[in-house]
Amino acid sequence: MISIIKDTIDQLKILEELKDNSSGAVVFFTGIVRDHNSKEKVEGIFYEAYEEMVDEILKKIENEVFKNWNIKKFIAIHRIGYLKVGEISVIVGVSSEHRKEAFEACSYGIDNIKKRCPIWKKEKMESGDSEWVEGVMINE
């Protein structure tokens, strides 16, 4: 399952979806809104995406993961809209027979979401200021 959503990400529900009697491992990466950046206190982050393109790139990443690792299930979900400190912005979950494949596939998944998906974030500071986070040029 891969998608961009506006609702809260329910990690326990995703764990249930990843579980599989033939899998001995489930690995998650969970991205969470932090309460500070390098300069000041952060209140929340607004996320925006080119949703149709993100869907296509997530499908590619999913195919690559299944091609390169012997895993059972792969889930990647990114949330958009305004998120407060402590809320989950992105989750990548993998189940596999053994942990090594799950760790590697999960790491590949989140690294490639960050490098290849057209998603942008703007931090809202406690001071009232807001600022787009300086990003990286897309590498797709």
């Binding site: 990114h78 960050k114 998906c117 942008w120 300086e134 990003g135 990286v136």
Partner: peptide, 10 residues
């Protein structure tokens, strides 16, 4: 066609 400024997802 879309204009894609530097990305910052995650």
């Amino acid at each position: 066609i879309a204009l894609i400024p530097p990305i910052s997802g995650g």
